[in-house]
Every structure is written in C-alpha cells, then in structure tokens.
C-alpha cells in the first residue's frame, strides 16, 4: 500500500511526521498481530482510542509507568541508532557476554510463562 502512493508523499513530509506515521502503524500493527478474532481487535483498538471511559492519566497509569520504568529505559536506549554499538565493529568478549545474558534472561521469562502452580491440589 505504501509502495503505490505513500512513498512519494512521505518523502515530502517533514521528519517528525514520518516518525509519527511509523509509530501509529506499529501500534496498530501489533494489535493485529496479537489477536486472531476481529471482535477482539476492534475492542482493543477502541480501548486504545479512549472509548472505554478511562482517563488517559490516572493512578493506574503512574503505577504501570514506574513499575516498568527500568524496562522502558532499557528499551529506549536499545532503540536508539548508534554506530559505535552496532555490529560493524569487531565481535568482542563483551558482546558475547551480553548476548549470553540476554538469551539467559529470555529463557527465564519463557519458562515463567508456563509456571502454573495450583492453590488446591487437584485430585
């Protein structure tokens, strides 16, 4: 879709508008990716647009922000383009350790997702 008429238009737009467009497409794209039923997609998107009578900023928002603050911080840093950190340079020991650590952490989260303790013993 973008290829047909959008690309020429995008080139004329200022940079920040291009970023905004990308962000919106990404946000909606993830919703489409997660849900396989159209009714759920519509419900989630309408909640995102604010049709569920929830205020944009309340105590719940603050709670989610501060509890995930470390993760958000790491994500922001990791998303920044930086020539020095990219793989153009040699693969050093630091890289190895870092990749190993990331892999290890990912596995722990995956295993935890299957963790299913029962409160009452099932007979």
């Amino acid at each position: 879709m973008e290829k047909w008429w959008g690309l020429k238009l995008l080139l004329y737009l200022p940079r920040w508008l291009r970023h905004l467009y990308a962000l919106i497409i990404i946000l909606i794209g993830w919703v489409l990716f997660v849900f396989d039923q159209p009714s759920l997609i519509i419900r989630y998107l309408s909640a995102m647009m604010g049709f569920n009578h929830q205020s944009l900023w309340n105590s719940d928002t603050v709670y989610f922000v501060y509890t995930n603050a470390v993760l958000l911080f790491v994500l922001i840093i990791a998303s920044l383009p930086n020539k020095q950190w990219s793989r153009n340079s040699e693969l050093s020991l630091f890289h190895l350790v870092w990749y190993g650590f990331l892999f290890f952490l990912s596995v722990t989260y995956l295993v935890d997702a299957t963790f299913n303790p029962f409160l009452y013993f099932r007979f």
Partner: peptide
C-alpha cells in the same frame, strides 16, 4: 529459572 525471573523483576521497580 522461575526464581531468576522473579529476582530480575524485583531488582527493577516491579511490585508484582
């Protein structure tokens, strides 16, 4: 593995 994930969450500001 489950214990490590819980520890990692606790080291960040996660409360649950």
């Amino acid at each position: 593995w489950v214990w490590v994930k819980s520890t990692a969450e606790q080291y960040s500001l996660q409360q649950e």
